[in-house]
Design a binder for these strands. Structure first.
Length: 891
DNA sequence: ACACGTCGGGG
DNA sequence: GTGTACGACGTGT
């Protein structure tokens, strides 16, 4: 029988001391399949010291675990060489024993180098058979009977080859969310705390059911199953997973919380953890450095929507509340987690229902995020391109992807790949990198300030680093290190030498050629595509292609890479610097335009033109002239036109950009390096910054922006700013008493505990606070916003100006040429700061702080309670009298 | 200015 | 599972 399937996961099992590969996936009818491949064995290569191959052979044949060794002509991956050399290909029985045998062979004095002895067995297999994660295969199959896997079909695969198809099988998602109680008061601990509710949500729907909740209290219903106890609940969950049979298990922070917790509870309850697509291998978690956890469920993929969102969107906060509000416009149900145990233990059926629905909603939201935001698309394409399994595309970094691709392409041309460096080699490389250095891109010193007279044309090198690899044929396999051989070579401006493409094309240049060509094809196809679903996949593919091609440069300079070669990384950046500097000079000297800024692969050119259409034409002609001067391999693109441009420093700017869409100009503000949202800033800061930048860019009026800022300060001084805009949030990570230093939000928690220990926030909670007026240390003046409202307390405007607004706003106005005193309105008859200072809470005693040692004054005391000079703070009064402040020790 | 340490999400 | 493995931000020298 011939069968086609899309590959979701691969692993192997050992039967009679031999591996059997298992390929999990789905066929064209969306039936789940597991295909077994027998007879494939692990192997690696060794290179003996010159002339010692025969001696080495003798030694290796003495190893009982070695099934076979044969001589093979292979090419060394580092440095250009004309001919392959004779290596030994060592074949073994059991993948699990490879590392041991590798190490014993590696230590032998006859060894020059060992290659490919640390490739995961499944990836060794997939590379040899040219199959990719989420790729399709075509296989000759024979039916097989087994109870070890749970798939619809199980087959023995006798022949197998890749099959070209861009379609995807229907993905089934199951979201899981658990609720637990905690007896310690902090985060629950799976070794002693129980799970009380497990909610699940399905996409597509399961028998017309969107979600199903398991609970040990409350009433049954269509979508609620009441279980006797936690054990029954866990067993039921396993049944739900088996019955629904999802490809993807998701949840919010499922990798770091729900999954480890669930699996631990199953272990405690002695329930088999076989929630994957086989009966013989349980799901398991592995901790990687004390925070990150990797979850493995054989035959399925675990995708954490929290991690995906964190990697793909830039937000201030990544809690489920905020994320679903922004991305789904849906609200999480309102249950504070200190409420959970109260609701659970209330005995009130209505309250149990509330908790059940709360849990249900969380699972639905986690599911909604991944499905509606199509978070997997890009990773599916990355898998197809790099060969990685989807699970590994989700968890792994860029280096892993590059390496997988390199293994395949190197092997195709009979090159072998080095092993990963061990810790001592890494240290050596780090030292080398430290000593020699890796220089980055060239950054043109910006003409700081506002450019609103005329337009700014932005030109970019398209895929600069990948193109440099190609145009100089840069690759580990082409670099010439020692004496140049008698071959045709290319020399980079910085003097690195590579053999020319006509002699031998490098592997990386050839890979990049394919990736870049494929990307432009995809982009062409996107222009014609009308089907929304197909367009989505094309876009994901295009993004994946870009991501992958841009990873190669970083990879060569990454000390843990198999093919870390500092000279290559330096060759790339030096070519880049050379190119952009040449362009800069050409623009300035030959064309007479003024470059006002440029970074690595881009240049911003000011033109006197103010009309957008004519400015666009000028931009196009500048681009053409530059490209005329450049070699065909490296070309610039003109995509951006700014009507105004505010640059503060290198890497920090804001621009008013115009784009022509369907014949009409559309505008937007584009910012780089200017953060308007930050965790530790209150909303007023973001609002004020955005508004000020808007005024500066759109009106070109810096005075007006200054007036606006002064207005905000005035409102602040007059208490006219809504308190919600002044709330700063921080989270409590451990018990308040165990904090060594003084932290404002912790001081507030202590205060709240004294007032009402019931409602005070606990470990893991986020605390929102404001700073109120008073003559105490800053950290003692934190207050609960609700309490401030109730008791009509006044916020401290000086704090908000000096610690919140000023630092980011100052940077903007300084760039515009204002001084700090102009900014604060000093020099006018009544300065705003003076106004603020004029009426402190306890008016005539308090006038800020003064250092007892050096006499430095502060409007609000430094957090540490100490002056910059280390001296102690005293309260300054208008009369000059001072009183000592008790300073908290510990910071 | 730079290296090191901690925190995030979840209950 | 032939695997050693995040990033942003805040603090301290």
């Amino acid at each position: 029988m011939i069968m086609k399937m899309q590959l979701l996961d691969t692993d192997y099992v050992i039967v009679e001391d031999r591996p059997i590969i298992r390929m999990f996936g789905k066929d064209e009818d969306n039936k789940t399949v597991c295909g077994f491949v027998k007879g494939y064995l692990p192997y690696f290569y060794v290179l003996a010291k010159t002339g010692k191959t025969a001696d080495l052979e003798k030694f290796i044949s003495s190893k009982p675990d070695v099934l076979n060794q044969e001589r093979a002509m292979r090419r060394h991956p580092r440095g250009f060489s004309k001919e392959p050399v004779e290596m030994l290909k060592i074949t073994l029985r059991n993948p699990q024993r490879v590392s041991e045998i590798r190490d014993s062979i590696k230590a032998h004095p006859l060894i020059e180098e060992v290659f490919e002895a640390d490739i995961l067995f499944k990836y060794r297999f997939m590379a040899d058979y040219v199959v990719s994660g989420m790729g399709w295969i075509e296989a000759d199959t024979a039916d097989v009977n087994t109870h070890t896997v749970k798939t619809n079909k199980t087959v023995n695969i006798t022949r197998l080859k890749p099959f070209e198809s861009t379609t995807n099988t229907q993905t089934k998602y199951l979201a899981i969310d658990i609720e637990t109680l905690s007896r310690s008061g902090g985060l629950p601990d799976p070794s002693e705390d129980e799970i009380i509710i497990i909610s699940t949500a399905f996409y597509p729907e399961d028998k017309n059911r969107k979600s199903l909740v398991l609970t040990t209290r409350g009433a049954n219903s269509d979508s609620v199953i009441r279980c006797l106890d936690e054990t029954e609940m866990l067993e039921k969950l396993r049944t739900i997973i088996d019955d629904y049979d999802p490809d993807v298990i998701t949840g919010f922070n499922i990798n770091n919380f729900d999954m480890p917790f669930l699996l631990k509870r199953m272990e405690v309850a002695k329930i088999p953890r076989t929630i994957g697509r086989c009966n013989d291998k349980p799901a398991y978690t592995k901790e990687i450095m004390k925070n990150r956890v990797r979850v493995t469920v054989p035959g399925r993929v675990v995708a954490d929507s929290y991690q995906l969102i964190k990697r793909n969107f830039l937000f201030k906060r990544y809690g489920l509340t905020d994320v679903s509000r922004i991305l789904l416009r849906q609200e999480k149900l309102d249950v504070a987690h200190s409420e959970i145990s109260k609701l659970w233990n209330s005995g009130d059926p209505g309250k149990i229902t509330k908790l059940v629905e709360y849990a249900r909603k969380d699972a639905e939201l986690a599911l909604g995020l991944i499905v509606k935001k199509q978070l997997l698309d890009k990773y599916i394409e990355l898998s197809k391109l790099s060969g990685m399994l989807l699970q590994d595309s989700l968890d792994g970094g860029e280096a892993t992807r590059v390496e997988n691709l390199l293994l395949r392409e190197f092997n195709k041309k009979s090159y072998v790949v080095p092993c990963k460096p061990d810790s001592s080699e890494i240290r050596k490389k780090e030292k080398e990198k430290e000593d020699q250095g890796l220089k980055g891109g060239f950054v043109l010193t910006p003409k700081v300030g506002l450019h609103a007279d005329g337009l700014v044309v932005v030109l970019d090198f398209r895929s600069m680093y990948p193109s440099i690899f190609r145009s100089y044929n840069i690759c580990p396999t082409t670099i010439i290190t020692g004496n140049p051989e008698d071959v045709d070579t290319v020399k980079t401006p910085a003097g690195h030498t590579f053999v020319s493409k006509s002699v031998q094309e490098g592997i990386i240049p050839s890979i990049l050629g394919n990736l870049l060509e494929e990307r432009s094809k995809v982009k062409q196809a996107m222009k014609k595509e009308t089907d929304e679903e197909k367009l989505r996949i094309l876009d994901a593919k295009q993004l994946a292609l870009k991501l992958l091609s841009n990873s190669f440069y970083g990879y060569t300079g990454y000390t843990k890479a198999r093919l870390y070669i500092l000279d290559i990384a330096n060759a790339i950046t030096s070519c880049g610097r050379h190119l952009i500097q040449t362009v800069n000079q050409t623009v300035e000297k030959q064309f007479g335009y003024q470059p006002i800024y440029g970074d690595t692969d881009s240049i911003m050119i000011k033109i006197p033109e103010t009309d957008l259409d004519r400015g666009w034409e000028t931009g196009v002609s500048i681009m053409r002239r530059i490209n005329g001067e450049l070699s065909g391999a490296m070309q610039m693109e003109f995509e951006k036109l700014f009507k105004s441009f505010l640059i503060l420093t290198k890497k920090r700017y804001a621009a008013w950009r115009f784009v022509k869409e369907n014949g009409a100009w559309k505008d937007k503000i584009e910012m780089k390096g200017i953060e308007t949202v930050r965790r530790d800033w209150c909303e007023l800061v973001s609002d004020t910054m955005n508004r000020a930048i808007d005024i500066i860019l759109k009106r070109g009026d810096t005075k007006e922006a200054l007036n606006y800022f002064n207005g905000v300060m005035k409102d602040l001084a007059e208490n006219k700013i809504p308190i919600e805009k002044l709330v700063i949030t921080k989270s409590i990570t451990k018990s308040p008493s165990s904090y060594a230093g003084v932290q404002p939000h912790i001081e507030l928690v202590k205060k709240m505990q004294k007032r009402n220990s019931q409602d005070a926030p606990g470990v893991g909670d986020r605390v929102g606070y404001v700073i109120i007026k008073g003559n105490q240390l800053l950290s003692k003046r934190t207050e609960d916003p609700a309490y401030v409202k109730e008791n009509k307390l006044e916020i401290d405007p000086i704090y908000y100006v000096e610690n919140q607004l000023l630092p980011p706003i100052e940077r903007i106005f300084i760039a515009l040429g204002f001084t700090k005193s102009e900014l604060l309105g000093r020099g006018r008859q009544a300065s705003l700061m003076e106004m603020m200072r004029a009426k402190p809470a306890k008016s005539n005693v308090f006038d800020g702080f003064i250092c007892a040692t050096c006499g430095n004054s502060y409007a609000s005391a430094p957090l540490t309670g100490l002056c910059q000079c280390g001296g102690k703070m005293q309260i300054k009064t208008p009369t000059g009298a001072t009183e000592k402040i008790v300073v908290q020790q510990g910071i």
